[in-house]
Computed example of a mutant assay.
Amino acid sequence: MKRTLVALLAGASLFPLAGPPAVAVAPSAARPAAPARYAHSAGYAPSAGFAPEFAPEFAPGYAPGDTARTRAAAAGLVPGIPRGPQRPAPGGRLHIEYVPRSEAGHAARSARCTRFTGPFQRQAERYLRRKPDGRQSAGDCRAIRRFQQAHRIAPATGYAGPVTGAVVRLLRARKDPNRAGHCPVRAERTACVDLDRQLMWVQQAGRVIFDPVPIRSGQPTMETRTGTYRIYLRRRYHISNLYHTPMPFAQFFDRGEAFHGVEDDIYEGPGSHGCINLTWSDARNLWYVLKKHDVVHVWGRKPSG
């Protein structure tokens, strides 16, 4: 009898006690730090609400799978993860410009023009048909401020920082994005990803069928891989297997790297973990342009800083 009782107790120890079901925890909402030489102007902050998502893809070597968690999350059954691609809040998003730390207080206190010359001064002057001398003047500052106000860049002090420079690059590319010929001209649809300018567009037989839009590629040490690929999987309501974060309108093209939408400002943060991030609306529009097996061509290198 004693021997039987001991055997029963030993067997019972192999099974854990039943407990409450595990609850999914939403990813941290910590926001990446600004580049060292820039600071968000005092009084301005990126919009809160949706957790920033800079690591949406699979680890290298992993293949995406239609897991039970993915299906449940898409149906809204996993706590802490929204259901399906979430429509952004109404109204345009402010793009927060980085300014010198010494300028942050000035920008908050006054709407007057900055006295500083930004790193993208010459590019802004050239686009605005000012004398491209790379030096700030009162007339330059007023023109850059008007440009910033028109494109919802804050604070609109006339400082031509990285965000202002990125918007100038986007607008200059609209006329002829493949002028340099880096993206091959094919009879089939080709998604062109320019890491140098942080832009992408779609062309077919030499004609642009999806205008250039801003992207956010991989951060340093986790750069987006260059090369020519084909879209092998599309998921409208995808959740990252590795990071458990939403990847709306995901279109995979290279071992887990994908185009997909994000809800934070596309100009914020150091970058993704390899995916090509787009704004929610751009990712949605791209979803209706590309199809499975379409070509994706990636070249260049993301600028540092």
Score class of each variant (00 low, 15 high):
16 P>F: 09
114 T>R: 02
68 A>Q: 12
204 Q>E: 13
83 R>H: 09
45 A>M: 05
157 T>F: 04
143 A>G: 09
118 G>S: 00
102 S>K: 06
13 S>A: 15
96 I>F: 08
174 R>W: 05
238 H>A: 14
300 G>W: 08
244 H>T: 12
24 A>I: 01
190 T>G: 07
146 R>A: 15
78 V>R: 00
21 P>C: 06
146 R>K: 12
69 R>P: 00
213 V>H: 01
151 H>Y: 14
148 Q>L: 10
125 E>I: 04
263 E>V: 01
45 A>G: 12
270 P>Q: 02
139 G>W: 08
3 R>A: 14
192 C>L: 06
94 L>E: 14
134 G>M: 06
42 A>E: 05
239 I>E: 15
303 P>N: 06
249 F>P: 00
273 H>M: 02
277 N>E: 09
143 A>T: 09
90 P>L: 10
232 Y>C: 00
94 L>M: 10
268 E>K: 09
250 A>I: 01
264 D>T: 04
103 E>N: 02
94 L>D: 15
291 K>M: 01
248 P>T: 08
242 L>M: 13
46 P>I: 09
246 P>G: 04
150 A>V: 03
199 L>Y: 02
274 G>Y: 01
255 R>W: 06
175 K>V: 10
68 A>T: 09
209 I>M: 00
75 A>T: 02
78 V>N: 01
131 K>Y: 11
86 Q>G: 12
147 F>I: 08
97 E>K: 07
202 V>I: 11
35 P>I: 11
301 R>D: 13
207 R>F: 02
3 R>Y: 11
299 W>G: 04
46 P>H: 10
74 A>D: 13
248 P>I: 05
217 S>F: 05
28 S>W: 06
153 I>P: 11
155 P>V: 14
39 A>S: 15
53 E>K: 03
262 V>N: 05
14 L>M: 14
74 A>L: 07
180 A>Y: 05
174 R>K: 14
77 L>D: 11
266 I>R: 03
157 T>Q: 05
218 G>E: 12
97 E>Q: 14
40 H>M: 12
101 R>H: 14
175 K>D: 07
148 Q>D: 10
73 A>T: 10
272 S>I: 10
29 A>V: 12
71 R>V: 12
82 P>I: 05
254 D>S: 09
61 G>M: 02
136 Q>F: 04
201 W>C: 03
260 H>W: 03
176 D>H: 12
20 P>V: 13
193 V>R: 04
112 R>I: 03
15 F>T: 14
79 P>D: 08
35 P>S: 09
260 H>P: 08
32 P>Q: 08
279 T>V: 02
256 G>M: 07
264 D>I: 03
248 P>C: 08
175 K>H: 10
303 P>L: 06
162 P>V: 09
56 P>L: 03
203 Q>A: 12
